[in-house]
Design a protein around this nucleic acid. Structure first.
Length: 661
RNA sequence: GCUGCCGUAGCUCAGCGGUAGAGCACCUCCUUGGUAAGGAGGAGGUCAUGGGUUCAAGUCCCAUCGGCAGCUCCA
């Protein structure tokens, strides 16, 4: 007998080998003797079982004493099981579409937003295949095929199973052969289709819920571009139809916010064939660019940073000294000047080191916080380019802090706080942090690494920041903290970074005079807050859907005369008042009706529309209309100018002028 | 870089073997209009580039360049 502990402090005894499905069924039927735990009626919906914390099939026999919980729809585990089974059904549908013996199956894992399956197919998939495959999936769901787990005795047995199958099994054989000796190899069979799989799965294909094929793409076997090119089908699945609908809707919303699209609509930037990967900042985008940097400069001043500018092109000797020539040259643009090698800078660090080393430094100068809004150029493969998020030239809001190892913790803490301040003020609160520690191949002593990693961790903890550990992911020259934020489509982007560097000071022989009069070596912290302005801008565009807060908006207010003849004087006067208050304002002089002018302003996402007609002209007022359509009525021009000025200065995310209650 | 898809007016797109189209934007004129599209007219394209097939090529084929999605990599 097995003693099985259920939720709600319920314990039942059953013969060894009883399955979770049987126990759930008994409890649902309340035939288990005694009251069923609260919520038990829902257990008939269990998609899997958690036995001693491990998610398994409901049909898996339970051995000895165990804890048992149902895995119910709504939990992340249940969704994963659903999607995993959906992946198998997708594979089965593809097999039916092309013929079971025509398809080579690779792998079909669950991913964040759904799942995919990779195939080697007799021909290229075309979009018309997809609805057919979906229909076949639907048919398999209706057939309600039981899903059966098969365990191989050993690897040989497993290989025999796949070889006996009608389906091609080149990849499966390769996978099985790579498994460690002695590990259980399992298969899942539904109808005519069997797939190598660890499980767990739904009990039958009839339990499939809402699914949808999303896209097709190329992929390589095991992600290796030297291996077989496969066709990947992306799909997703949810328990509720409404969840699937909401997901599709979210993707559509994200597409509307796509910075590449909005960037063209709002005339922010272009990336032209004349300069692939090298963005052209249009005047509107340049305003945002400049505001971001102006605001950062203001914050840096208050934190005792100084700013420098270093050359874009420096000679090969410098890059050899920094190590870039040996390790980063394939990403650098190299040129020749009077027959000597030069390179365009891919990073600002060597320049910063040169700034530091001009003149002898004292410990009294440390920490020396040196900022540079440096334009960097890096060669990127054409296939890696993507809008403003992956470019070949970009401006980093870079800084290098030269300090002692003892000062590191406080400096890092200051940087962490600054990053959160900057992102928080923009309403970006979903920031993931990763502490990357020493890699196998590294420079510096273990004692240095101990102290450095300890300082970073202490800095994180002292600020109460949540973070994840990325062991071994640090740079060879020091540990780092990486920051990831999500864009509108849910893609993660690395933006800010904060890295410790023991190596740069060595390479550039950086020194300062210590309290005791001896020469000492500083450490360097590289850090960027926005990361690259280009990428950050892309994320901002998507974050705000182009409707920037006032301080960033390229056009802050537009004055709309009801009649451009009758109200020209009043409009010009209002424009002067606004411009005197440093508001980016203009008058819409176009020969259009009021409604059209408002529509135009609204398409351009202008935060404030100020209408002037007979009534307003007489009293030096403007009728204020917010971007969201709210009509605030007529207000004195001077008051509006003052309010906008204050709103921009405070970098508020919400309008400073509001409807009076 | 690799695989697939795509490239027609400033933007969004239709046309898919038989003499280049629409909407918006732009220019001119009429209209002077009170909170998301007033009317009329006009200009604008060697259909990405270069080859090929054909009596005839945006349209079919090949190559190159660029874009998109993935793979890979990174700020």
């Amino acid at each position: 007998m097995s003693r099985i502990s259920l939720p709600g402090d319920r314990v039942v005894e059953r013969p060894a080998g009883t399955t979770a499905a049987q126990i759930f069924a008994e409890l649902v039927a309340e035939t288990a003797g005694g009251p069923a735990p609260a919520g038990a009626p829902a257990w008939k919906k269990a998609v899997a079982a958690k036995v001693n914390g491990e998610v398994v099939d409901v049909s898996r026999p339970i051995g000895g004493d165990a804890t048992l919980e149902p895995v119910l729809p709504g939990s992340p585990e249940a969704l994963e099981v659903l999607r995993h089974t959906s992946a198998h059904v997708l594979a089965q549908a593809v097999a039916r579409h092309f013929g079971l013996d025509q398809v080579e199956f690779a792998i079909g894992p669950v991913i964040e937003e759904g799942f995919f399956y990779d195939f080697d197919l007799p021909r290229q998939l075309v979009p018309e295949d997809l609805p057919k495959i979906e229909e076949l999936m639907e048919a398999i769901r209706r057939e309600n095929l039981p899903i059966v787990r098969i365990e191989a005795k050993d690897r040989e047995d497993a290989l025999a199973i796949v070889r006996a199958d009608r389906a091609k099994s080149k990849f499966k054989q390769e996978l099985i052969s790579s498994f460690p000796e002695g590990e259980t190899v399992s298969f899942y069979r539904q109808g005519e289709f069997t797939d190598l799989c660890r499980g767990p799965h739904l009990p039958s294909t009839g339990r499939l819920a809402s699914f949808k094929i999303m896209s097709i793409a190329g992929a390589y076997w095991r992600g290796d571009s030297k291996r077989e090119q496969l066709q990947r089908i992306y799909a997703t699945a949810f328990f509720e139809r409404d969840e699937l609908k909401a997901y599709v809707k979210r993707l559509e919303e994200a597409e509307k916010r796509d910075h590449r699209k909005v960037g063209v609509q709002l005339d922010l930037f272009r990336i032209l064939p004349e300069a692939p990967g090298f963005p052209l900042w249009m005047p509107n985008g340049t305003i945002v660019f400049n505001e971001l940097i102006t605001e950062m400069r203001r914050k840096l001043r208050r934190r005792d940073y100084v700013e420098a500018r270093t050359p874009h092109i420096m000679n090969a000797d410098l890059w050899k000294r920094s190590g870039h020539w040996a390790h980063y040259r394939q990403n650098m643009y190299v040129t020749q000047i009077e027959e000597r090698d030069f390179a365009v800078k891919p990073m600002n660090c060597p320049g910063a080191a040169l700034v530091f080393s001009q003149g002898l430094r004292s410990y009294r100068d440390l920490p020396f916080r040196l900022a540079e809004f440096g334009l960097c150029h890096r060669y990127e493969e054409s296939g890696a380019l993507s809008g403003m998020t992956r470019v070949r030239s970009f401006v980093q809001d870079d800084a290098h802090v030269f300090c002692t190892l003892d000062q590191v913790q406080l400096e890092i803490r200051g940087i962490l706080d600054l990053i959160h301040e900057v992102y928080g003020e923009l309403g970006m609160t979903e920031i993931e942090m990763f502490l990357a520690t020493r890699p196998a191949d590294r420079t510096g002593t273990d004692a240095m690494w101990d102290q450095a990693e300890g300082s970073l961790e202490q800095a994180l903890r002292s600020g109460g920041y949540q973070f994840k550990l990325n062991p071994g992911d640090g740079a060879f020259y020091g540990p780092k903290i990486d920051f990831k934020i999500k864009d509108a489509i849910g893609r993660g982007h690395q933006t800010a970074t904060c890295q410790l560097d023991f190596s740069l000071p060595e390479k550039f022989d950086l020194e300062y005079t210590g309290e005791d009069g001896t020469r000492k070596r500083p450490v360097v912290i590289h850090r960027a807050i926005y990361g690259s302005i280009e990428r950050f801008f892309a994320i901002l565009i998507e974050h705000f859907a182009g409707a920037f807060p006032l301080w960033l908006a390229p056009e802050q207010a537009i004055i709309v005369p009801v009649s451009e003849e009758r109200h020209a004087g009043a409009a010009a006067a209002a424009l002067k008042v606004l411009r005197d208050a440093d508001i980016r304002a203009s008058v819409d002089w176009s020969n259009e009706k009021l409604g059209k002018k408002i529509r135009n302003a609204s398409i351009r996402k202008v935060p404030y529309v100020l209408v002037i007609g007979d009534r307003e002209a007489e009293t030096s007022e403007v009728a204020v209309r917010l971007r969201d359509g709210t009509d605030l009525g007529a207000l004195p021009v001077a008051d509006v100018a003052a309010a906008l000025r204050a709103e921009a200065a405070s970098r508020s995310l919400t309008p400073g002028l509001r409807k009076n209650p």
